[in-house]
Write a protein that binds this DNA or RNA. Structure first.
Lengths: 143, 143
DNA sequence: CAAACTGTATTAAAACGATTAGTACAGTTG
DNA sequence: CAACTGTACTAATCGTTTTAATACAGTTTG
């Protein structure tokens, strides 16, 4: 399940959006997989259902999920998701690059850093994905 | 002068910290240059002096400036500033890289993006620095 | 010295967003 | 029908940010 970070200054609903969309991109949540219901996720996280709903509304607005009244909320098509998430990520990446460039960091330095992080990250990857693993809900939207 | 972005969800004092430290790293504000007084910057930005003071307190805490009672606030030593800012920037960069890696973006893709942004950014750089230019206050801390 | 600046400190109120609480309605499922 | 689902709405609460209004201490300049 998701873990909330109360040290994070971002609002809870935004953390939920980020963590769930991460799980989709990582392939843990696949197309048409049902998400936990608004009320059950709220209970699991010990937060108000309204907060979860707000996160789901945002996820739907961004194209990560689709919701059916009376049925539930489900992971949207992976093609949309991948495009969306990678666009988000590249935008954030571009912003970080721009700041580094303005601060006098060279392109070579950044590329070295990229490769260093990739080398180091591959070993930590297993632990990270374990930590983010979401319980399997099973079932599909079109049951 | 600085421009505040009210669409930005971050608090005003934090925007001030970021923009002023940016100007220092870019070399627009150099060592011992006096910053606008708490009251005058507040007037320029049409905000409360307390908000500016909070930004200055934070800038001092992070080592970007030093303040002398009755005299004013001044840009700190560039060696401290550069180290501080580059550490901040590399941390943000590393976070962006990690997310991209998790989303399946290759290291080569990121490096290509870096070089593309550097090539494109060099032409936009003049416009950016123009936009961020701060009026010249003249004078030094040790007058 | 006096006026006009500086930074700094403090307390209270106001404003704003995030979150909670409670309720309600509509659709689905068994 | 009972128990789920998403959705909608209003009101209250809470924390942070910002404002407001002073006040005090040090510096500078006429």
């Amino acid at each position: 399940m998701i873990l909330l970070d109360y040290k994070d200054r971002r609002p809870i609903y935004e953390q939920i959006v980020e963590k769930l969309s991460d799980l989709m991109v990582r392939g843990v949540l696949t197309e048409n997989t049902p998400l936990p219901s608004v009320r059950s996720l709220a209970a699991d996280l010990s937060i108000n259902p309204n907060t979860v709903q707000r996160a789901y509304i945002e996820l739907e607005r961004q194209g990560y999920i689709y919701s059916l009244k009376g049925k539930g909320s489900f992971v949207a098509g992976m093609d949309h998701i991948t495009k969306q998430k990678q666009a988000d990520i590249l935008a954030a990446f571009g912003s970080a690059v721009e700041k580094a460039r303005a601060a006098g960091v060279t392109a070579d330095d950044l590329c070295s850093e990229v490769r260093r992080l990739y080398a180091a990250g591959n070993q930590a990857q297993k632990a990270v994905s374990d930590h983010l693993t979401i319980s399997n809900y099973g079932g599909n939207a079109d049951d």
